[in-house]
Nucleic acid binder design. Structure first.
Length: 276
DNA sequence: GCGTTTGTTGTAGC
DNA sequence: GGCTACAACAAACG
């Protein structure tokens, strides 16, 4: 559920709250959340300072003072919160970082899908498979039109799973994929090599703009997303198709339809988005 | 009690 | 070999 705008919102909140904080010790009530060696994880983090927090796609990268990087992926419902020292962990608290300023940074995950690992800084793109294959960020500067045209043309699959694949473009999930396809008037099952040059250009613009707009609105809260301050996003009020099956298309009034594409719930307008 | 929800990965299949 | 499709993972909710 956290897609790029939500992860970026979390990154900004974490930066405001814990950048510069020193970690005293780490408790791991749910060891499966840590995929690197657990003993090393706890030993290496003790005494380290959080210098900076970066993001790549949907991954958070905590840059530490000891030349290590904590790579964290929230998957479906991972959340961070900062509490006074000694606060009772939540039912689904998986990792607790005790800071030396009498606060605890907690990682909570009701679905237990999120994962984190500690790797040497600079090696994260080799050691974390998701980062190694990550496509360009959906920005004006990084998402090159020539690149996008080329990979769309040589790929033979439906546009929806193509956009969900992080190795093509970083950061899109189920919500924003449905939104940008509606904006571009492209059916989610259209084959990537059937898109016209104009559609590719429009798709690129819509991806960049939509991710930008959603980030400005602090992300979308559909089920449970909130930032580190416990605040929900505002972008759910801006969605045109996701969660609106059975309601009228805001462009033409046709009833929006929900189907499955690549095992994912997919909402679209059968009149605006006609498959070619 | 079971289908639905979603992001990524490992693997089966072509 | 390279690409694509899909089951699996986990847990809450209706």
């Amino acid at each position: 559920m956290p897609e790029l705008p939500e992860v970026e919102t979390v990154r900004r909140g974490l930066t405001a709250l814990v950048q510069g904080a020193k970690i005293n010790s780490v408790a791991v009530p749910y060891p499966k959340a840590v995929v690197s060696d657990l003993t090393d994880f706890q030993t290496d983090l003790a005494g380290a300072t959080i210098d900076q927090i970066d993001r790549r796609g949907k991954f958070l990268l905590f840059r530490l003072s000891n030349q290590k990087t904590l790579v964290s992926h929230l998957r479906m419902e991972g959340q961070y919160s900062v509490e006074p020292v000694g606060a009772t962990p939540h039912k689904h608290t998986e990792v607790i970082f005790s800071l030396d300023d009498d606060r605890d940074l907690m990682y909570n995950d009701t679905r237990r899908f999120g994962r984190m690992q500690l790797v040497p800084t600079g090696k994260e793109y080799q050691e974390v498979s998701g980062l190694a294959k990550m496509g360009p960020e959906p920005t004006e500067a990084d998402l090159d039109i020539t690149y996008l045209t080329s990979i769309l043309a040589k790929s033979h699959r439906k546009i929806k799973p193509f956009l969900l694949d992080q190795s093509n473009v970083a950061g899109l999930g189920n919500i924003y994929t449905d939104e940008v396809l509606w904006q571009t008037k492209v059916h989610p099952e259209t084959l990537t090599d059937h898109l016209s040059a104009e559609e590719v250009a429009n798709l690129r613009q819509n991806i960049i703009q939509e991710i930008n707009r959603a980030t400005v609105h602090h992300g979308t809260t559909v089920h449970s997303f909130s930032n580190v301050f416990g605040e929900v996003g505002q972008f759910q009020n801006e969605l045109d198709v996701y969660g609106r099956a059975g309601e009228p298309c805001r462009r033409c009034g046709t009833t929006l339809v929900k189907i499955k594409v690549a095992q994912r719930g997919t909402t679209y307008c059968p009149k605006c988005q006609v498959q070619k």
